[in-house]
Amino acid sequence: MATVSKGGPAALLERLGRATINAISEIGYAASLLWEALYWLVLGHFRKQPVRVSHVFEQAMQIGVAALPILTVLSATIGVMLALQGIHTLAIFGAEERVTTGIALSVSREFAPLITGILVAGRSGSALAARIGTMRITQEIDALRVIGIAPVRFLVTPPLLAMIVMVPALTLWAILVALLGGGLLVSMELDMTLAVYFERILEDSSLDDLLHGLGKSLIFAVLIAVIGVVNGAAVTGGAEGVGRATTRSVVHAISAIVITDMIFVFLWTL
């Protein structure tokens, strides 16, 4: 009797093929989801299915305001860390005073959007995946449909909109706190007043740097929301499936954020 090898090159190729098809299918689904979410945002009112401002506000509170304490701690820590590392490195060349340039550019262009994106992916992207996954297995999404509520309008558009508003806002907050954290360290280490420190920060950075960071955070917001929903909607297999989807959504979102960050930097600096 002929047997099929489970570990041969053909099986490996088959697995690779399946994974590729699944990935393309998920990207397609994510694109259609994004399109449908925007459709309801723009046309929902005319289709008797308006996106409720109260739902967006509720999501904005959870995604944005509730994340402020931990984001503040992390941003301040990163500011201090950058200042310490910068002073230590520049001391080799006797150029410690130039640490402000490094802090200004790396915080506004890289660290603040990245840490905000990763934090929101871990807190809110995973919560979104878990919520939608649980609703799927408990037939709550079917219930929405039979009540006559478009699930994407009700479940996806509010968090997407809230992320688009709150992630850049959190990024701006992270920039300010990280700069302040770095400033406190610099003022202690280099006998530089905070006023002078911020004056130099403003001299060393431009509006372009700020827009670079905020632009990236806007893309991260869309990625986190869409990846959370796609993973939640794909849940099968009960509570264990919800757990898997939650983990998968965090891993995918963080990977997407880091890769997008690289592409963004590459394109911005062309």
Binding site: T134, M135, T138, Q139, E140, A143, R145, G148
Partner: peptide, 20 residues
């Protein structure tokens, strides 16, 4: 279909109440 669904009610097996 949305208009038609307003004339239908469904009681699901597990209730499908929104837990939040």
């Amino acid at each position: 279909m949305t208009d038609l669904r307003r004339k239908m009610g469904v009681a699901f097996q597990g209730g499908a109440l929104f837990s939040s």
